[in-house]
């Protein structure tokens, strides 16, 4: 009998490394949402003199590949410089795990994004963001690619649910092609707000539904 998971995936799933929270982390992130799918939280500690990740922990609300990727990504990132850790790709994580089933890509990519977001969080909090790029409609669309459409398990952009994005003077409006009384409408709205609001030049976010 053969599982679709490699021995390494199963090993990390059974005994995940670096699990838990870091009290007072230098950077942290939460990717995904309970309403829409798997979630990963990543916490990092950075040694300022070397600019390396001195400690990293993760938490997972997800399937085996989500847990295993979270585990491997902490191993790959530990001891690396911020710049090196930023460049770790899903492919590298997947290779280190001996491969992941294609269908599981979307739940494992969260851990990689979680690491990058934790680093961004660290940089933002420590005034390390070099240039502030003005937000564009495209930048918003890119962020919306991280919001899942729970009906299909794919993101809002790929499932054509984004009807329109308006952006003027720091006011953003996103129009979603689903009725406001849809069972997932409130969860989607909340998640869009969470993704767009932190952008440095956005003052107000509005989410509208069609019908």
């Amino acid at each position: 009998m053969k599982f679709p998971y490699s021995e390494t995936v199963l090993e990390h799933f059974r005994h995940p490394r670096n699990v838990g929270k870091i009290e007072e982390p230098d950077g942290k992130s939460m990717e995904g949402s309970p309403a829409c799918g798997d979630m990963v939280a990543v916490y990092i500690k950075v040694a300022p003199e070397t600019n390396t990740i001195s400690d990293i922990k993760f938490e997972s609300y997800g399937c085996a590949s989500n847990i295993a990727t979270g585990s491997i990504i902490t191993e790959l990132a530990k001891g690396k410089t911020i710049e090196e850790a930023k460049k770790i790709t899903w492919k590298q994580a997947s290779d280190a795990l001996g491969g992941l089933p294609k269908i599981k890509a979307h739940c494992s990519v969260l851990a990689v994004e979680g690491l990058r977001s934790a680093i961004t969080d660290y940089e933002e909090r420590h005034g390390l963001v070099k240039e502030k790029i003005p937000t564009t409609v495209e930048a918003i669309r890119k962020r919306l690619k991280k919001v899942m459409n729970p009906v299909t398990g794919l993101d809002l952009v790929r499932t054509n649910l984004i009807k329109d994005i308006y952006l003027k003077d720091g006011n953003a409006r996103v129009v979603i092609d689903m009725p406001a009384n849809h069972q997932f409408a409130p969860a989607i709205k909340e998640e869009i707000m969470e993704k767009i609001e932190p952008l440095w030049d956005i003052k107000k976010v509005e989410v509208k539904f069609t019908e």
């Binding site: 739940c107 729970p150 299909t152």
Partner: peptide
């Protein structure tokens, strides 16, 4: 009934049908 388990990556239509959310199906 988790979406992760199904081939279609969709959570159980039965759990959604009884008013459950993704988390409950998950």
């Amino acid at each position: 009934g988790s979406a992760c388990f199904s081939r279609s990556l969709q959570g159980s239509h039965v759990i959604y049908g009884i008013g459950g959310d993704h988390e409950r199906a998950h």
